[in-house]
Each structure stands twice: as structure tokens, then as C-alpha cells.
Amino acid sequence: MNISYLTETENADFLSEFALRYPSCANNADASKNKNGLFIFISHTQMSKTPRMPRQPGAVFLINKITNPSSGNSRYPEILFRHPFNESGISDSEIFALYAAAERFFERKNIHFFICPADTENIKHVSEIKKWAQIRAQFEPDASHFRQNAAELTQSERDTAEKVITQLKLTQTQRHDFLRCLVNCKLRGGFPEAEISEFAFANPAGKKERSAVYDKLKQKLNFIDY
């Protein structure tokens, strides 16, 4: 997973920095580029912007709530991963806007905003954040957490499917539909070799007959009896 860092200092115009890094931000076509990336924003903002932040010298805070003081609206970054930092909210219209912009390029669970109070040892805390980000970036969803039972056809199964597709002269739409149907059958109870093999030898005469044979094939696949 790629990690993008953006660090704000008191004098930096971070919105320009963001636009510079993602010049295509006006172009939605590139929005999918960073879907799998991690976006870390580190702000060394003044304490006055974080009235609720406990005054702990040297503390780094992960932001769990961003409020726009002019509208009163709030956004809540997803916190799905354990971390060693304190948490806090922040009331800042620029950071609110930055979060909204980041959402266009990164998945919400991959956006992490941090605050380091301006009067602390910046280098040490930035390196703590980067260390956590490295671990976070290596995280892969475990099969035991997520039920993503996606079946794929093996090469030999694909070859069998292609024989039927060629024999029945299926259109592109029908081909796509047929392959999806085969994946569903495989998910439900195994690749339906027996059910489709006879269709590899079918010899429909015209377009109408081909359509009828295909409908029969789909009916057979969709409603396999157990």
C-alpha cells in the first residue's frame, strides 16, 4: 500500500500542496488511482484550534472528529485500526475542506489525520506517526475477518465454457452473463461440468434457435437441483 504524507506547518499553504500532488483533483477519471493508498495528514496547528484537546505536552492526537466552525457540520474519520495515540476532535474549516478533498482520492478507512501541537518535538512525533503508518500500510484483510467468498474459474473450466460460447455463438452480453452464471454455480455447489457439456455439441440453426438454446442452458444452470 502506498503512503502519501502531507505535513502542514504554520506558514505552508497546504491546499496548494494538495493540488500540486494531485493535479488531477478536478478530474474524476484519476480518482481511482489512490483507492488503495493510505493518506496521512499531519498538522502542527495552534492549540487554539483544538479547544478540547487535553493539554498534554508532547502528545500526538489522532483526529476522530473534524468540525467546520462556520457551518457547524462535522465529519468523523473512520477509526478501524488500533493505534498508540490519543484521540481528539478539531474545529478548523481548512482541515474540514482537506478531509472532504482527501475522500475523493482515498477510501475513508485509509485517511488518517494527526495533530502535533506546535510547541512539541516535531521530528520525534512525526517519526512515531510514520512508524505506525508503515505497520498500518502492511495490513491485509484476513480471510477470517471478511466473508469474501469469490470463486474464479480455473483455466480448464474456462476452456470448457469457451467451447460452449463458441458453439452457441453467444453475444458479448450473453458471454459475460454465462460466465457470471458459471461462477455463481461454482460458489453454490461446484462447477456444473455435467450440465453444460451437452451444450458444447449443440448445433442451433439461426439466431432465434441459438437464443432459445441459450435460455434453456441458463434455466438449467440457474436451477440445478441438489
Partner: peptide, 9 residues
């Protein structure tokens, strides 16, 4: 612990 449940809240 990159794949461990310990990473999730």
C-alpha cells in the same frame, strides 16, 4: 502482526 486481529479496534 500485519495480518493479525490485534491491528483492528
Amino acid at each position: 502482526s500485519k495480518n493479525s486481529t490485534s491491528l483492528i479496534t
